[in-house]
Simulated scan of single mutants.
Amino acid sequence: MTTRTPPFPVLAELSAPDGAALVVRALARPERTAPVVVVLPAMGTAARHYTPLVRALHRRGATVVTTDLRGHGESTPVPVRGVRFGYRELVEDDFGAVLDAVERAFPDAPKLLLGHSLGGQLGLVHCGLRQPRLAGIVLVASGSAWWRALGAESDRRPGLRWLGRSLLCVAGAELLGYWPGNRFGFGGRESVGLMRDWARQMRTGRYRARGAAADYEAALRNVDLPVLAVDVEGDALAPPRAVDHLCGKLPSARIERWRYRSADAGGRKLDHFRWIRHNAGLVERIASWARFPAAGAETSGHGGRDGAASGARA
């Protein structure tokens, strides 16, 4: 990308109760009932970085909606000292506003969330808490950040380095008033509140947020949707055991597990982020699971929630 602005039309400009602003963009299909995929990014990852995935899903028959997590890309506020938003604001304010905007724009289309890393984790919490009528959820490289579930699969001491890193990150964020992850190679510029919530989940394995409307762990148990949970070969940030730990929190969901391997990506090397560009095999797997119309076919009505293709209202 040579520009910092995503090359897709603006769908909506939203304001949260605390004044935060979100820009929602969409690459829309002409078919009224084409499936809509709402992409929730990873921590520190601007929505523009998903452009290859957006274009691939669009070619395969989906309308694709993107937005930046607050504090990144086109979303505000930028984390500085005194800006303390965390998981609660993303889960309870931002995601619902985005899904409402998508519903207004595409009322007749089935809708799915596609969450990468933190976007997938918090997207699940939102679904359990607010119960949006989605057709399904796709998790890609999205696993619990619990330290015991992290690290390479061959690591005999899984996640110990990540546990130590989380303590240093939150200490640095407390000292500076924000986390300058863009300078230290982990995350982006993050608010101190978000880093606190992330470090807490890494230590305990549980999702909690100060001032939350409900118990987030209990909310996860209420997720009653089809879920395609994909771990990615070469991904030490969301290895299979981390994805399994997150899926274990979803007893009511109808989960299908799959591993995206280099062989599925035409032999390209994969990791926590490379799959975004090397996505061909993954897009086809999502299309099959969600029952997208056959490539090149006109999109018509859909049915059957288990097939992740029923009409939905966010």
Rank of each mutant, 00 (worst) to 15 (best):
A56C: 01
A34V: 11
S252E: 09
A109E: 11
H72Y: 14
R259S: 08
V78F: 06
A209T: 02
V37K: 03
A34W: 07
Q131D: 12
I255G: 11
L160F: 13
A312F: 05
P7Y: 10
W289Q: 03
A21G: 09
L129H: 07
R157T: 01
S300K: 02
P6R: 00
A199C: 02
A56Y: 13
G211P: 01
V36A: 04
R241Y: 09
V39D: 09
M1A: 11
R208E: 10
L220H: 10
A287H: 01
S154R: 00
E174S: 15
L282M: 14
A290S: 06
W198P: 01
S15Q: 14
Q121Y: 00
G177E: 12
W275F: 13
L225F: 04
P7A: 06
S75D: 11
D231A: 03
G205H: 13
L14F: 09
G211C: 00
R165Q: 10
W147T: 03
R59M: 00
A199V: 05
V243D: 12
R206E: 06
R148P: 03
M195F: 04
L163D: 07
A105Q: 09
T204E: 03
S15F: 14
T204H: 12
G44F: 11
A152W: 04
L69G: 09
C169V: 01
D108V: 01
G177F: 13
P9C: 02
E190H: 01
L168S: 02
T63P: 12
R183F: 08
T204K: 12
G159D: 04
G44C: 10
E89F: 12
Q131V: 02
A309Q: 04
T67L: 10
R254S: 09
G248A: 12
R274K: 12
G151L: 15
G71W: 06
S15P: 03
R210C: 08
P293H: 14
G307K: 05
R189I: 07
V83Y: 11
L194E: 09
L124W: 10
